[in-house]
């Protein structure tokens, strides 16, 4: 008698990571600020809730990877090694865990609960900044690769939402990579000044919120496919 794999692990993980990223962004992760919609402002606000939700993103990715492999195992004739997805998700989750742990344990400059600016905090802040960018780059890369191999198993490929999920996954990956590029120091500031000159909204703010929203949509669609697909017997 074989144990029936749970249908719920991967969908819960996907949705957890989607909501985790969105809520963390709304709390200011990645430099997002609602204030920037009304005026030309850049903030580098960092807070504890951001870090907590980053841990949820990491946990969600671990669950997604484990659940996915359990669900498609034995059915993946078209997919030579489903463990690759697991490794991809685990590697990405590590970046999120590292960023959250570093953010919670290091003293960073000019934030709401890490007060003051000392030189000891400068290097931590710069390192945290680079870790944040790595999070978006890793997640974006993971999504682009996922859009190619995640839906390979026949049971997922045949689902009617498969194409939508694949496109959303790819779109979120591309947006997250674009966000990483345009948020790079000095590139971000150049875009900031140009957007002011051209009297257009600051693109980084728009992509900053659009990318997590598309990512969440992709996760919801993918989890729907995983939920409403016949389990391998």
């Amino acid at each position: 008698m074989t144990k029936k794999p749970s249908k719920y692990i991967a969908p819960i993980g996907l949705i957890l990571s989607g909501f985790g990223l969105l809520v963390s962004t709304l709390h200011g992760f990645g430099g997002f600020s609602t204030q920037a919609f009304g005026s030309y402002v850049i903030t580098d606000y960092v807070s504890k809730p951001q870090m907590v939700f980053l841990i949820f993103v990491g946990l969600g990715l671990v669950l997604s990877g484990v659940g996915y492999v359990n669900q498609v195992k034995g059915q993946s004739i078209q997919m030579k090694n489903p463990n690759f997805i697991l490794l991809l998700y685990l590697a990405t989750s590590l970046v999120f865990f590292a960023t959250a742990i570093f953010g919670l344990t290091s003293q960073l400059k000019g934030t709401d609960f890490w007060e003051g600016t000392t030189f000891e905090r400068i290097q931590s802040t710069l390192f945290f900044n680079n870790l944040s960018l790595t999070c978006f780059l890793a997640l974006g890369t993971m999504q682009v690769i996922s859009s190619i191999i995640f839906f390979k198993p026949k049971m997922l490929e045949q689902h009617q939402l498969s194409n939508i999920a694949r496109n959303l996954t790819l779109a979120s990956g591309i947006l997250l990579i674009i966000k990483t590029i345009i948020d790079y120091p000095l590139i971000k500031e150049s875009i900031f000044i140009f957007s002011y000159m051209l009297k257009i909204p600051f693109p980084n703010t728009i992509i900053g919120i659009t990318a997590p929203l598309i990512y969440l949509s992709a996760q919801i669609t993918s989890s729907t496919i995983l939920l409403y697909t016949k389990n391998p017997q």
Binding site: Y40, L126, L186, I193, Y196
Partner: peptide, 17 residues
């Protein structure tokens, strides 16, 4: 160098950054 710079809080008001 690039990557070792964080321009922190910024605001444009009346043409002044």
């Amino acid at each position: 160098g690039l990557g070792n710079i964080n321009l922190g809080q910024q605001m444009i008001d009346a043409g002044i950054l």
